[in-house]
Simulated scan of single mutants.
Amino acid sequence: MKKKIIFILWFVFAVLLIGFLFVGRSARQNAAGEEVKINIEGNNSLIFLDEKNIARILKQYGIVKGVETKKIDLAHVEHMLEKNPWIRHAKIYFDNDNNPCVSIEESEPIARVFALDGNSFYIDSACRKLPLRENVVTRVPVVTSFTSSNSKLSVPDSLLLRSVRNVSNFIVKDTFWNAFVGQVNITPDKNFEVVPIVGDAIVKIGNSDSLVAKFNRLYSFYKGSLLKTGFGKYETIDVRYNNQVVATLKGGAKAQAKDTTTLKAIAAIRGLPQNTVAEESNKTIKRP
């Protein structure tokens, strides 16, 4: 009998202990945190988002200092945050002290696009249209003569915007071309022309295909010809065609650099044996 009583007492004690632990854990989970922690990830030179902007949005959905965890639908708030075009991804969680923690990945523009109607907008690498922010300017390629500024684009306009994204993304990822290109123009036939910061020549690159090869040809032409003759000699430089550069002199005469000229120039720039040039012509040239 004594053993039975002892067993019952231990059993009751264990149940009570588990109950206290459960209540304590539940209380800790629902305890109010002392601050809202916000972390914004992205290019530090951009100020399209800041903590005050995010805190203001969070407040609309009840995430403030002292909020209880059980009162917050985290998935819903994340979804609402990501409706902001400048927020690429949002993650919300509570730390060990029950402080709401908000991690924001900022959308980073790769081009500012000007439409034919005079309106403009940014696009990011996912081809999302981003609105302008007052008093905020960032150094990205400027693209002119886009066909529409409508929020919903037609199929042809969407395809053209993807081409804009491809050209702009290529430029901003290369420090040399990002510094070299002043503007990208869309021609009436939906091709692209590059306006360099240096010189007067317009560079015709055609569509957004084979950009590595086209810009390799352009780079070799600059290194092999323009540095000798000067940047003001040519009116247009055409790199649209395989293994050649066609440059129009001011006044109308044409100078053409074909296969071996262009490829040998690449070899000379990179210090490569001539028999390796054909293999290297479609790879990105490493610039100093």
Rank of each mutant, 00 (worst) to 15 (best):
P273F: 03
V155L: 05
V113A: 09
V77Y: 00
V136I: 04
R139K: 15
S163Q: 15
N242I: 09
S163C: 13
V184S: 07
S168R: 05
V67C: 01
R139E: 15
I54Y: 00
V239R: 01
Q183F: 03
L46Y: 08
R25V: 11
K129M: 13
S225L: 12
E134T: 10
C101D: 06
C101I: 07
Y234V: 01
T229P: 13
V143F: 01
Q183W: 03
P273D: 10
A179L: 10
D259C: 09
G224C: 03
D174M: 07
K129N: 14
T248V: 11
R133E: 12
N150L: 13
I8H: 12
F176W: 06
N43A: 06
P85V: 02
W10C: 15
V167A: 04
I269D: 11
V67P: 00
L74C: 03
K286H: 15
F146D: 07
I285M: 06
T260R: 12
S168P: 08
Y61L: 10
N44F: 04
F22P: 07
S154D: 12
L153W: 02
T236K: 06
D95Y: 01
N84D: 08
N178Q: 10
E34P: 08
F221V: 00
W86K: 02
A55P: 02
K204P: 07
T276H: 13
L272Q: 09
I57M: 12
F11Q: 11
I5K: 12
F176M: 06
V140E: 08
A213S: 15
K214D: 14
N135L: 09
S281T: 05
Q274F: 13
I72K: 04
S158F: 04
I186S: 11
T138K: 07
T138W: 07
T138Y: 09
